[in-house]
Amino acid sequence: MSVALNGEKKDVGAEITIRNLLFKEKIKVHDYVTVQVNGEIISSKDYDSFVIKDGDEVEFLYFMGGGR
C-alpha cells in the first residue's frame, strides 16, 4: 500500500495508524506535529485510532518558530 507523505510517494506495507506512521518516520515528539489526511486535520487524540488507507494524501506540518 502506498500513500503520499509530504508530497512524496511512500510504501507503507499494510494499513497503518497515524501513530505508527509517525514512529515509522522517526518523529520523536508527536504532540506538536499537525497531521493532515486528505485535506483534513486529524486531532492528536485520534493518532492511535485513525487508520491511513491506500492512496491517502498525508501531510506532517511542523512548528517553525524562529523569526529572529
Binding site: 515528539v29 499537525t34 486535520i41 512548528f63 518558530g65 524562529g66
Partner: peptide, 16 residues
C-alpha cells in the same frame, strides 16, 4: 490556530 491548534510548551520546539 486552525492548522496548529495546540501551542507547544517552551522547549518543545527548537529556536534559532
Amino acid at each position: 490556530r486552525c492548522v496548529f491548534p495546540n501551542m507547544p510548551p517552551e522547549g518543545a520546539v527548537p529556536t534559532c
